[in-house]
Design a protein around this nucleic acid. Structure first.
Lengths: 245, 245
DNA sequence: TGTATTTTTATTGTCGACAAGAAGTCGGCA
DNA sequence: TGCCGACTTCTTGTCGACAATAAAAATACA
């Protein structure tokens, strides 16, 4: 049960704080907490999810825990083996081409729609996220870059005012976060700096309501990111490849 | 509760049959049954969902009922007012433009991908659905047309091999079924006959792997359907509009 | 008679306990 | 010694009951 001391202590503290709940609040707390931990790979793919354990941790009965788990399962973040275990869903490397295709399409569509539909306040919201991303890049906070980049693009999607796209895009970006987390140690800072510039161009195109430009910028941006992920996954780090034997 | 006698009898029989369940089967039965009834407007938007009542109907405790409801809520098919009632979600007429936009995009993308990616057996599966649609059109079974049309396009989407699109498209088509059900009495048979032809063209384009043609056919088809829904919604049936007063 | 306040009631949210199913364990047998 | 089957155990799935909450009803008051 208790694998690493420090992390468990941390969690216990969390549990203590949550001893008292407002009636329906517990389940969303559990849901959001687990969701974050899954996306941030604190709970790596394949981790077993034990209801009893969570019940202890959050000081709740198994019923609300279960409800949170059902929601996570509906989102595909966890997988339940009936009558047996429930585990954090694996990252589907086989399905990566589908993922890239959908991600690219959503980048384009949401950016297009933002340019076409944005209203008062939307640009401000986008700029807030862009500043946060910039800050993360400057301070070389790789994990921060990953999550603020996501927030930036979701802000754009929201300006586009289409809930179906926002929902799918959110899921895709969060799945992307999981993947990027796997490789974040390989991040260098040339690409992120480039992203800052690309983001700025996109914002400008949106402001100018230039749908066509927004589209092509988003498309190029998506290609960049997809290419980045691809290169991390297929990176050739065989130190001994050219060794004379 | 008891609106039409025959259908309620049917339900009772259903319930009786389910007196014994394999361990995890009850919840998916409840989920699927309710899902269908919502989409087919047997449970109209705004209908209260009473957990106790469902518990009686399916001869299950409230716990598995609740799990099914959570899943339906995650899909947006029902809305839960915390601590109060849970009702069948209303059809969002305000969000119709977003819906049409996403629907059209999914029509195009899935048909494109089908042309690009279909493999052995996919065409056969599509043809089966097309035959079913044709049969529904010939026998003027409007409700059948609505559901077989959905199945036809989902078969195409599946041939395209992108689970993200399949999932979103399924949701959109089912939401469309709810809307069309509202107006199905206004169906005439000129449009459905045209759809049969359009479907055949689409199939041919897919078989020929003509992505561009598949796209434009899908686009036109989507426009047709969107236009049809629009015309139903905004239909001017004021009998007394031109009455001399 | 109309409004504010208390009481009732109906329904959801939560709980602890039990039942069923599957994996792992142990013992028996060839 | 290796394989098969019963047994144990652990986790999930289900149940019935209780608690909290908000609407509705009933009551008191101006």
């Amino acid at each position: 049960m208790s694998s690493t001391a420090s992390k468990d202590d941390e969690r216990v503290e969390e549990a203590e704080k949550l001893q008292t709940h407002r009636r329906g609040s517990g389940v969303s707390t559990v849901y959001e907490t687990l969701r974050n931990e899954i996306i941030e790979l604190k709970l790596p793919p394949g981790s077993p999810i034990d209801e009893q354990q969570l019940s202890d941790r959050f000081a709740l009965s198994r019923t609300p825990i279960r409800e949170a788990l059902v929601r996570l399962a509906a989102e595909g973040l966890i997988t339940t083996l009936t009558n047996r275990a429930t585990i954090v869903s694996n990252i589907d490397f086989l399905g990566l081409p589908e993922f890239f295709d959908a991600l690219t399409l959503m980048y384009r569509v949401t950016t297009r729609l933002a340019a076409a539909n944005y209203a008062d306040g939307d640009i401000a919201a986008i700029l807030v996220q862009q500043k946060a991303f910039e800050a993360a890049v400057i301070s070389r906070d790789v994990l921060g870059m990953i999550s603020t980049n996501r927030d930036f693009h979701i802000a754009i999607a929201q300006a586009g005012r289409n809930r179906y796209y926002v929902e799918l895009f959110t899921r895709l970006l969060d799945e992307g976060r999981r993947i990027l987390r796997l490789y974040y140690s390989s991040f260098n800072d040339v690409l992120p700096r480039q992203y800052v510039g690309e983001h700025e161009e996109m914002i400008q195109a949106i402001i100018n309501r230039d749908v066509t430009l927004a589209d092509s910028l988003a498309s190029a941006h998506a290609d960049q990111i997809v290419g980045q992920i691809r290169s991390y996954i297929t990176a050739d780090s065989r130190q001994n490849a050219t060794l004379a034997l």
